[in-house]
Amino acid sequence: MSLEASERLIELIRANAGIANHAGGEDDVSIDAAERALGVAFPPSYRRLIEEFGTWDIAGEEFLGVYRTPAYGNELLGSVKATLDLRRDHGLPAELIVVMFDGMGGAIVLDSSKADRFGEYPVFVWSHVGEPVEKLGEDFGSYALGLCERAVRQW
């Protein structure tokens, strides 16, 4: 179901090109390097969107994804950099992966310690103090699709 939601989100982004942006996507080598850097695998729904877009936004909802830029060379940016920075500077637990920022000082994270039978992780808000404080969704694909569908309707 979560992978299906990611496929629907890909369609939504493509159908709303005027209010969406994305990079060109990442290959397995880059995604594997990102997972090694974090010490945790991406859930299938998040991995699928990174394969397709690398990083993306739609109707004001910005996802970190994984990407590189010429200015930073081979450094993996987006989710990798944000997660490693928050681990180093604010004690983000190692099982969490940052996928967005909430605009209020918190991070939207995936909790890899709570994988379901499909390898999907629940979505939480983490606010730089201890454990995640609020569960936002059961899996990334469904959470991201719902968030983006609302944002497009409100745009």
Score class of each variant (00 low, 15 high):
Ala33Trp: 04
Pro132Val: 04
Lys114Ser: 10
Glu134Arg: 13
Ala41Trp: 07
Pro44Ala: 13
Val29Trp: 05
Leu76Met: 07
Ala71Asp: 12
Ala15His: 01
Ala144Lys: 07
Trp155Ala: 07
Tyr72Thr: 15
Val98Gly: 05
Gly78Cys: 09
Phe118Glu: 15
Ser79Ile: 06
Met100Lys: 15
Asn16Leu: 05
Tyr72His: 15
Glu26Leu: 04
Glu120Ala: 02
Ala34Gln: 14
Glu95Ser: 15
Val66Ser: 12
Glu120Met: 02
Ala107Cys: 13
Trp155His: 09
Asp89Arg: 15
Asp111His: 00
Ala107Phe: 05
Gly91Tyr: 00
Lys135Pro: 15
Tyr67Cys: 14
Leu3Cys: 05
Ala23Phe: 03
Ile31Leu: 02
Lys81Cys: 06
Leu145Thr: 09
Glu75Thr: 10
Ile31Tyr: 09
Glu75Cys: 02
Leu84Arg: 12
Tyr143Trp: 11
Pro93Trp: 00
Ala107Gln: 09
Thr83Val: 02
Val66Glu: 05
Trp126Lys: 14
Asp85Cys: 04
Ile50Arg: 07
Glu51Ala: 13
Ile108Trp: 08
Glu35Asn: 12
Leu136Phe: 04
Tyr121Trp: 07
Thr55Pro: 06
Met104Glu: 15
Val125His: 10
Leu110Tyr: 02
Gly25Lys: 04
Glu131Phe: 02
Ile108His: 07
Pro70Ser: 10
Asp27Gln: 08
Leu49Val: 10
Lys81Arg: 14
Phe140Ala: 04
Val123Gln: 03
Arg150Met: 03
Val125Tyr: 07
Val123Tyr: 00
Phe63Lys: 14
Phe118Asp: 15
Met104Thr: 14
Asp85Ser: 10
Ser79Trp: 03
Ile31Ala: 08
Asp116Gly: 08
Val152Ile: 04
Gly137Ala: 14
Val125Asp: 10
Glu35Arg: 13
Gly103Glu: 05
Leu38Trp: 12
Arg88Gln: 11
Thr55Ile: 07
Asp27Leu: 03
Leu110Gly: 12
Ala37Glu: 11
Gln154Asn: 09
Ala59Val: 14
Val133His: 10
Gly105Ile: 08
Met104Ser: 15
Glu120Lys: 00
Ala144Ile: 00
Glu120Asp: 07
Pro93Cys: 08
Phe124Lys: 09
Ala20Pro: 00
Glu26Gln: 13
Tyr121Cys: 06
Ala17His: 01
Arg48Ile: 00
Arg68Met: 03
Arg150Asp: 07
Asp102Glu: 03
Phe53Cys: 13
Phe118Tyr: 12
Ser142Arg: 05
Arg36Val: 14
Ala17Ile: 00
Pro122Gln: 03
Leu77Asp: 04
Ile58Cys: 05
Ala59Asn: 13
Arg14Thr: 04
Asn16Glu: 06
Arg117Ala: 11
Ile31Cys: 05
Leu12Val: 01
Lys135Glu: 12
Ser113Thr: 08
Asp89Val: 06
Ala37Cys: 11
Ser45Phe: 07
Ala33Glu: 14
Val80Met: 01
Leu86Ala: 11
Pro122Lys: 08
Ala33Phe: 05
Ala33Cys: 14
Glu35Val: 13
Asn21Trp: 07
Val152Cys: 01
Asp116Ile: 05
Val152Ser: 05
Tyr67Pro: 11
